[in-house]
Design a protein around this nucleic acid. Structure first.
Length: 858
RNA sequence: GCCGCGGUGGCGGAAUUGGUAGACGCGCGAGACUUAAAAUCUCGUGGUAGCAAUGUCAUGUGGGUUCGAUUCCCACCCGCGGCACCA
């Protein structure tokens, strides 16, 4: 028995003292205690002369330091990356494995509103807790480059980034309808509205007219699609990003209103125009009043009014189609018929042009609408069944996702559905009736937030209300501290005296010429700062760049540092960040590339998601369900190594899996067994047959673990280590002999990334036996064990023999014999258990797959 | 509705360029040690028939391809995640 808690705390202190995991001037990991700095001034990650292909950047999702501390899910993903980091270091690579805090955000501010404790205090406390817990589970982070988004030396560069975007016209102000959360008292980005509710608090989101700041992410929409081909990400993640960007190619067709100069544009991806029999506009359609005839005015007004009262969510769940006729008609270009123009709430103002042409035979929504209001339903497509009867039921509607052939459409008759649509578009463009366009679902990113605890938007407004960006030389434009946190719908920054004073001082210093010219008050009176702060996703979508030069005061990061480490080799992040964070990060990367700061276009070469650890009841852990497992409890009972190895053993990293309270004990026993076997120093070394068997298993284990770690298949790596340990124990019990010192050290090396504390303890125990030197040069500084093909080779291979597809016998073959097909066949046919089945019959077919299987057919 | 992922013992899971289904761990059963318990160790453990050797069924369901299918193809059922009156 060993006291894991005492041992683990001892090693944690030794690692800390020796600054093991910092990247220093020479690009190597420090082992002599001279590099890095633990005093908060930080080291740098300069890597002059280092071989670039040997540099590996491992990144864990930026964490929000919540008050509740580390949970078991954090432990899983951090441990997974830590295993990789430790493995690659032992393989002689330069590993950059930084840590930091996404420290701005609502929870700390909401806590301040409730208790009056300033968010900066709450945040520092939470970070301290996290840091302590992370060190306790032995994550080998590079603490010298720790960053926090709420630190002025970090958000200085968040503001700098704003200025660059502003200078290029990619940060701009716009009036318009925005998503407003009445509970959080702030606007939200489209990405933060989930099914009409606020992502954070589930409050129904309202629409409000406000002037806000936006980042023009849509400039990069096509590149954001194309870039996905160049990265190794899960297919589901790519699909979701594509879905979100929502590119669709179609045509804008201009219709002329009959007896009027007014025109209406519709967007469609499927112009079955010989089948178009009506038009529908969104109730919010601009210029609607010009189309409504006197007789229809009252009805239309009532419908528009009713729609305005419905939220977008309610609009989308109402099943039955509704609508009213405007009284106007448009002329169908190809049929010459007049099409009635209706309004209906199923057409959304924000999608396409806010107007659609109704082709009821070939679109389900149009069909429902036409059916209800008794509008003509022409058929212009027949399906593969050739049925060309009138379309009078939903089953007969042939939409663009189905196969079909064009009919009743003049010169495109007989073409395939797809070809027909293409030809129609060509024809409409030729005639000047329409123009091909690409439409996107993606909108520009609204970054203004009416909250306190965030990065101030570095802008001032002059007495005329025109914005002026803060000069780069005056950054950071600091967040004031003397504010009233109570949310009022306007930013709390408005209540700061210091902020107002600072603004006047700045204005007098920087804008004196303008003030003189305009004749404004010379004291800076009449100017105001921007009171809104930035969405915290702005902070957290460029942090991976800052890490590599975290203490630089001249630039957000030097190009040589960025190009040395980036793009990130492996990004481990929760599946919840697929849309927001990743899209924004990719946008910033592409922008800064265009600005010339580096050459790559995608920040994260390879990405994987960790699954969720569920409660023992197979449900998502939550305080209200009482199924939360605390990592601290597990550590107290079993130690951090057990916690780490258990979480890695539970199953594949990417899948969700329930916590099994009892299974933890199995890992605990496994580690205790290793300690017992290794720390046994008096026994004689095993020899002969047993030695061969044991060494074979050991080298197979080295191979298996070396193969599995880069593939993130930690569960099977651990399973094989268990097999080895079981055999080792078996030999020790039966022979009363054990492994050689060298082989023990090799095994400890393989174990080290998984159970770093135990491995270092055992390494020390053995080292003391061999030499009396006391200085630390632990297992984590050693080279990864060499695997020997020779020693790992099996001498006997078992080949199953099948007759008519069923296994009927096993053939034990000496390893060098597996190539000899004839010998194998003879041996098999000589077996009693096989003769029995053949029983004089002719063997029709003999299939031998070398070393795998022999299959006989009779 | 569309897109994506998944379905294997009592439980977590292993095995896929098609080659012995159930590695490893948990749980369970029996035994050793012990005055006893814990710890530790040994053996067994998919269903079914059998004392056993062995046979047979079995990877969500139903078909197919193949000497051989958890793996490939077709049709379906169920669960999870995302998007959604997107024109």
């Amino acid at each position: 028995m060993y006291d894991q808690n005492k041992v683990e705390e001892k090693w944690q202190q030794i690692w800390d003292k020796n600054q093991l995991f910092q990247q220093t001037e020479n690009g190597s990991t420090v082992g002599d205690g001279k590099g890095g700095a633990g005093d908060g001034t930080g080291g740098t990650v300069d890597g002059v002369g280092a071989n670039d292909s040997e540099n590996i950047y491992l990144l864990f999702a930026f964490a929000y330091p919540s008050g509740s501390g580390l949970h078991v899910g954090h432990v899983e993903s951090k441990t997974a990356l830590d295993i990789l980091a430790r493995y690659y270091r032992m393989k002689g690579k330069n590993v950059f494995f930084p840590v930091g805090w996404d420290a701005f955000g609502l929870p700390a501010e909401n806590y301040a509103i409730k208790t009056g404790v300033h968010p900066s205090i709450t945040t520092v406390n939470a970070i301290n807790t996290f840091r302590k817990q992370i060190k306790r589970i032995g994550i080998s982070y590079d603490w010298a480059n720790e960053i926090a988004t709420s630190h002025p030396e970090y958000y200085r560069w968040t503001q700098w980034l704003f200025l660059q975007l502003y200078n290029k016209g990619l940060a701009y102000q716009k009036d318009g309808k925005v998503n407003w959360c009445p509970s959080c008292q702030t606007v939200l980005a489209n990405e933060q509205v989930v099914e009409g509710l606020c992502e954070r608090c589930d409050t129904q989101v309202e629409q409000k007219d406000m002037r806000q700041w936006y980042y023009q992410i849509t400039k990069y929409q096509d590149e954001l699609i194309g870039g996905l081909d160049d990265v190794d990400w899960p297919a589901a993640t790519k699909a979701q990003q594509l879905n979100w960007i929502g590119k669709s190619e179609g045509i804008n067709i201009t219709f002329k209103v009959v007896d009027s100069d007014v025109t209406i544009d519709v967007f469609t991806t499927a112009p079955t125009n010989w089948g178009a029999s009506f038009m529908v506009l969104a109730p919010e359609y601009p210029g609607l009043e010009k189309l409504v005839t006197k007789e229809n005015k009252k009805e239309v007004a009532a419908y528009v009014d009713a729609t305005n009262k419905k939220s977008e969510l309610n609009r989308s769940i109402s099943k039955e189609k509704t609508g009213v006729f405007t009284g106007s008609y448009v002329k169908n270009h190809v049929t010459g018929e007049n099409m009635p123009v209706w309004i209906s709430d199923f057409v959304l103002a924000g999608v396409g042009t806010g107007a659609v042409q109704g082709c009821p035979g070939h679109d389900m929504r149009d069909f429902e609408f036409a059916k209800k209001f008794r509008i003509k339903i022409p058929r212009v497509v027949v399906g593969p069944d050739g049925n060309d009867s009138p379309i009078d039921s939903p089953e007969k509607v042939i939409d663009k996702s189905m196969p079909g052939t064009m009919i009743n459409s003049e010169f495109i008759n007989g073409l395939s559905y797809k070809e027909g649509l293409k030809k129609t578009m060509d024809y409409f463009e030729e005639k000047g009736w329409g123009k091909r366009v690409t439409s996107y679902r993606l909108r520009d990113w609204l970054i203004s937030r009416q909250r306190y605890w965030g990065t101030p938007i570095p802008v001032l407004y002059d007495p005329d209300g025109n914005p002026h960006a803060i000069k780069e030389s005056h950054l950071p434009w600091e967040l004031p501290t003397d504010v009233d946190f109570k949310p009022t719908g306007e930013s709390p920054l408005k209540s700061s005296q210091e902020f107002a004073q600072r603004t006047r001082k700045y204005v007098v210093e920087v804008h004196s010429d303008l003030i003189k010219e305009k004749g404004w008050d010379a004291s800076g009176e009449g100017w105001r700062p921007e009171f809104d702060t930035m969405d915290t996703f702005v902070d957290s979508s460029w942090y991976y760049l800052r890490y590599v030069d975290s203490r630089n005061t001249d630039v957000f990061a030097r190009t040589k540092q960025i190009e040395k480490w980036l793009p990130v080799d492996l990004y481990m992040i929760g599946p919840e960040h697929i849309v927001l964070h990743l899209l924004y990060s990719r946008f910033f990367t592409k922008f800064l590339r265009d600005e010339g700061y580096f050459k790559f276009s995608e920040p994260f070469t390879k990405m994987r998601h960790q699954g969720m650890i569920l409660g023992p009841d197979n449900k998502k852990m939550s305080k209200s369900k009482g199924n939360v497992i605390s990592p601290d409890d597990i550590i107290t009972k079993f130690g951090a190594d057990t916690l780490r190895v258990y979480e890695m053993f539970m199953g594949p990293l990417e899948s969700d899996k329930p916590w099994d309270i009892r299974a933890v004990i199995g890992i605990y026993k496994f580690l205790q067994k290793i300690h017992k076997l290794t720390a046994e120093l008096e026994l004689e070394e095993v020899s002969g047959e047993a030695k061969v068997k044991l060494q074979r298993k050991l080298h197979q284990a080295i191979k298996k673990v070396s193969d599995d770690i880069p593939k993130l298949k930690f569960n099977t790596a651990i399973a094989f280590m268990m097999e080895f340990v079981n055999l080792w124990q078996d030999v020790m019990i039966k022979e009363n002999k054990t492994l050689s010192i060298e082989d023990k050290i090799a095994f400890i090396g393989v174990l080290a990334p998984f159970a770093p504390f135990l491995a270092d303890e055992l390494y020390e125990t053995i080292s003391k036996k061999v030499s009396s030197e006391a200085s630390y040069g632990g297992v984590h500084q050693t080279k990864w064990p060499e695997f020997s093909q020779e020693l790992a080779k099996d001498d006997l291979i078992t080949i199953p023999v099948q007759i008519n597809g069923k296994v009927r016998a096993q053939l034990e073959v000496i390893a060098d014999k597996v190539e000899d097909e004839k010998a194998i066949l003879d041996m098999a046919e000589g077996l009693e258990s096989i003769k029995k089945y053949i029983d004089g019959q002719e063997i029709k077919k003999k299939i031998y797959i070398k070393g795998k299987i022999l299959s006989l057919v009779i």
